[in-house]
Each structure stands twice: as structure tokens, then as C-alpha cells.
């Protein structure tokens, strides 16, 4: 059901991990639907993404789209990273099954969420960037259950 590229990125995810004291970090998705993505960005003073890492809870496509998204933004300027759309991620993976297209959207949102965090911290305005939707954890539920 998945392309070879998707399987490759799932089996050998690129840039998986964390960055300490990142320039920006964003988490999107929710446990309810079964996908959560977190992106960490390391951005230098010139506005170039020097490093990027991800963590993902989700299906094969969720892992693969996160991994591909990190590859597409690494080394880019912030403005260029804004051009990495879900379509670009999908194309780079040679396509996704229709039921998994939302994973690529989530990858795009995750990058935007991390960039938003960066922009907020540095009091910058990035063109075309909107405040990310708040991710819905099941935290409240968890607190009750504990």
C-alpha cells in the first residue's frame, strides 16, 4: 500500500530525535486521531535552518511524511521552508494512499508550528505564517484518570 520511498523513510527515518534549546519547536495533531508530530528547528542568525529533528506518534505514513519534511526544510531559509507544502512532501514520497493524505498536511502544519514558535520567540513576522491550531492532547482526560 505504501511506495518504496515511504517505506524507506519509515524504516530509516531521517533527522529523528530532539534538539536541546531549539530556536523553535511545534507539536501538532492529537492522540485521538492517532497522529502527533513534533518538529524542532535550529535556526541561525541569518535565518537559515541549520538543523531539524522530529518525533512522531503515528502510522507509517505519519513517520515517513515527518521524515521527508525534515529533509525538505533542512538547510533552507525560513521563507523557503514556508514553501514546503503537504503536496511537496507527498510528491517527494512518490505519493500516499488517499486515506493518508492528512499525514502530509500534519507534516506541513508541524513545520509551521515550529516556525511560529521561532517567530514568537524572536518577535519576527514570517509572511504567510498563521498561528497554529492548538493541539489537543488527552491530557485533561489523563489527569482525571490518574
Amino acid at each position: 500500500m505504501y511506495t518504496e520511498k515511504v517505506m524507506d523513510h519509515f524504516q530509516n527515518p531521517r533527522n529523528m530525535g530532539e534538539i536541546e534549546n531549539p530556536a523553535g519547536v511545534g507539536t501538532v495533531g492529537n492522540a485521538k486521531c492517532g497522529d502527533i508530530m513534533r518538529m524542532y528547528l535550529d535556526i541561525d542568525d541569518a535565518g537559515i535552518i541549520q538543523d531539524v529533528k522530529f518525533k512522531t506518534f503515528g502510522c507509517g505514513a505519519a513517520v515517513a511524511t515527518s521524515s521527508m519534511a525534515t529533509e525538505l526544510v533542512k538547510g533552507k531559509r525560513v521563507e523557503e521552508a514556508m514553501q514546503v507544502t503537504n503536496k511537496a512532501v507527498m510528491e517527494a514520497l512518490d505519493g500516499l494512499p488517499p486515506a493518508k493524505v492528512h499525514c502530509s498536511l500534519l507534516a506541513e502544519e508541524a513545520i509551521h508550528a515550529a516556525l511560529w514558535d521561532y517567530a514568537q520567540k524572536h518577535h519576527l513576522v514570517i509572511e504567510g505564517l498563521k498561528e497554529p491550531k492548538k493541539d489537543i492532547h488527552e491530557d485533561e482526560e489523563e489527569e482525571e484518570a490518574d
Binding site: C33, G34, D35, F57, G58, C59, G60, V63, A99
Partner: peptide
């Protein structure tokens, strides 16, 4: 903390057939 479909694909790569109640 993990999702079933990912688990199933990785098990499949090891030659183990199973199933999950995950949405995917």
C-alpha cells in the same frame, strides 16, 4: 505511547503477521 500500524508494519518486516485496533 506507540501506534499500532507502525508496529504492524515493523512486525511484518520481521515476518510476523498480526493486527491492531488502531484507526489506521
Amino acid at each position: 505511547f506507540i501506534e499500532g500500524e507502525s508496529l504492524l508494519i515493523m512486525l511484518d518486516m520481521k515476518g510476523i503477521c498480526a493486527s491492531s485496533g488502531s484507526a489506521c
